[in-house]
Nucleic acid binder design. Structure first.
Lengths: 110, 110
DNA sequence: AACATTTATTGTAATATTGCAATGATATAA
DNA sequence: TTATATCATTGCAATATTACAATAAATGTT
């Protein structure tokens, strides 16, 4: 079907998977890493840096922005993007809760 | 195209996105959470617990197994699944390195 | 052996994702 | 105003993902 049955899962599970999904493409990982690494977070720089067409980068930026992980600021003809620190921390808390689950040592059945 | 251009990204970026992608569906998040929570990691239990058809669960389990995050053990007619602790820790290290990047405070351009 | 139980696989339909050319929108420069 | 530069949007083709019915495979039971 290509369509996840989100209604049968908890909000938490859907939230985790939504964040994970946006990290599920190397271009978006690369964009975020570049935004962390440098000031020059202008869209055009990302196009050059990453090597995908401008509309493709723009689309990936849109998804990152939709989830609130980045902010965009118009500066003349160009747009400056950067990490949304507050939301990044929120996301990290949610993801950490999932990733840092206690591993049951004695319960190993395999 | 529906096809990510993995060749233009680093191995690290591809690895991160591959792990993220597998977490990018609530069913797989739910499966993992259930495996963390309980002993009874038999496939049939997951089908009941989660509420998707058996082939669908089986398919999700296959993907989790392919990335090495879970192990499967045949026990009679049923199969017992559990977290692959060693690989889970490895994954966590890789994901943490990405999620815990330092946030540049003074570099805020937005 | 014949049957039952459990899980994996195959095939298929519906939807989503990715990538980009073409085009729009917006702001600056000449 | 006209041109230029930068980014967003639209439309489309190719591929991927999701879900499940039907079926196969494997093991246990009678």
């Amino acid at each position: 079907m290509g369509l996840a049955k989100t209604e049968i899962f908890t909000d938490q599970q859907n939230e985790i998977s939504q964040y994970a999904k946006v990290f599920g493409h190397p271009a978006r990982v690369a964009i975020l890493q570049h935004l962390f690494k440098t000031d020059s977070c202008v869209c055009g720089d990302l196009v050059t840096e990453i090597g995908l067409a401008q509309p493709t980068i723009s689309q990936h930026l849109k998804e990152l922005k939709y989830l609130g992980l980045i902010k965009g600021n118009v500066e003349g003809t160009s747009v400056c993007y950067c990490i949304n620190t507050e939301n990044w921390i929120k996301m990290k808390e949610i993801m950490s809760k999932f990733l840092d689950q206690d591993i049951p040592k004695d319960k190993d059945c395999c």
